[in-house]
């Protein structure tokens, strides 16, 4: 009961300076509730991996505090580490070892005996589609398999907080979807998940809450729904049956002619699109399909980061 009331992760005034000058983190505060599926977003070099590195003690913080389910990572590091499972961005397992050994060894580092470790290894390798390859040197696995192996390894000690740094980078769409299902499943069974990703569709589909980090500062920390509501304009791409030479005029909508068979229409938040289709039908323009130009979260993310740039450049 105590664990469910205590935040899964509490970060206070966390800062990290590399060398004498480069401030990767500038005193960030972050709270992730137990059971959450949380996205940590930000452009390259924003401080996401540094934050994750500090949480799992691969990076030494300059100041601030981090606690995991109430256990401070400095004062009570052994218990804090038990709660964390981490899937890093880069492959970091021994490429010459077999998947089964990688998992059993990792369990051993957490003090889990071989019998229990083998049972868990079998379960996770089967769930992640790696059981048939368990005796093969891990260097022979495909990129997607290696990534799944790192997920299995992170889960072998059954952590309550799973941190994934770009888990689906370079993974094909089908596999990405199956990994999403797997992550949703373990989240529903109680594991708190923190995810960094460049696929903002991923964050929008999976996560309930989100923090956007940029230049070492948290610029937004809210629910995904609340964040999407902030989006004032959405751009839709319409594919037309017939060739168009210019953009049609429709009152109340900004329409751009992008190529001979497609239009881009900006729709303000709260505005309906029925009149648009009625107007296009009057002008004998038949629409075959419609889609968002970019992911909604991506539009918002870009606008936030772009707004931030002049300030940080000054």
């Amino acid at each position: 009961m105590i664990e469910s009331q205590t935040p899964a992760l509490q970060i206070s005034q966390l800062s990290k300076t590399y060398g004498d000058h480069f401030e990767a983190l500038k005193g960030i505060d972050l709270r992730v509730e137990s059971g959450d599926f949380f996205a940590l977003l930000g452009p390259n070099g924003a401080g996401k991996s540094t934050t994750i590195g500090i949480i799992c003690s691969l990076v030494r913080k300059s100041s601030g505090s981090v606690s995991v389910f109430g256990h401070d990572i400095d004062a009570d590091f052994a218990n804090a580490k038990r709660y964390i499972g981490v899937v890093p961005q880069e492959f970091n397992f021994n490429q010459f070892e077999q998947p089964i050994d990688i998992l059993v060894n990792q369990a051993g580092y957490y003090g889990i005996g071989r019998r229990v470790a083998l049972e868990r290894a079998e379960r996770y390798l089967k769930q992640l589609g790696l059981w048939e390859r368990r005796w093969e040197p891990s260097r022979t696995l495909s990129g997607g398999m290696k990534r799944r192996l790192m997920i299995a390894r992170a889960l072998i000690h059954e952590p309550k907080l799973l941190i994934l740094d770009e888990p689906t980078a370079g993974v094909d769409i089908e596999l990405r979807r199956s990994m999403w299902e797997f992550l949703c499943d373990i989240n529903q069974r109680g594991t708190t998940i923190i995810l960094t990703t460049h696929y903002l569709e991923e964050a929008e589909s999976l996560c309930r809450n989100v923090a956007i980090i940029d230049h070492g500062k948290i610029v937004q920390n809210t629910s995904v729904k609340a964040l999407i509501k902030q989006l004032s304009v959405e751009t839709f791409v319409l594919d037309t049956r017939d060739e168009l030479v210019s953009a049609p005029e429709v009152e109340g909508y900004r329409i751009a002619h992008t190529d001979s068979h497609s239009l881009e229409v900006e729709v303000v938040s709260g505005q309906t699109i029925n009149p648009l289709f009625a107007a296009l039908a009057e002008q004998a323009i038949e629409v075959l399909s419609m889609r968002n130009k970019t992911n909604r979260l991506e539009e918002l993310f870009i606008s936030m980061v772009e707004k931030k740039l002049p300030e940080t450049a000054a």
């Binding site: 003690s57 218990n79 580490k81 964390i84 970091n92 397992f93």
Partner: peptide, 11 residues
């Protein structure tokens, strides 16, 4: 190979 991180993240 960075697999030393397996030990460093463990208790």
């Amino acid at each position: 190979q960075r697999n030393i991180e397996e030990l460093l993240v463990s208790p």
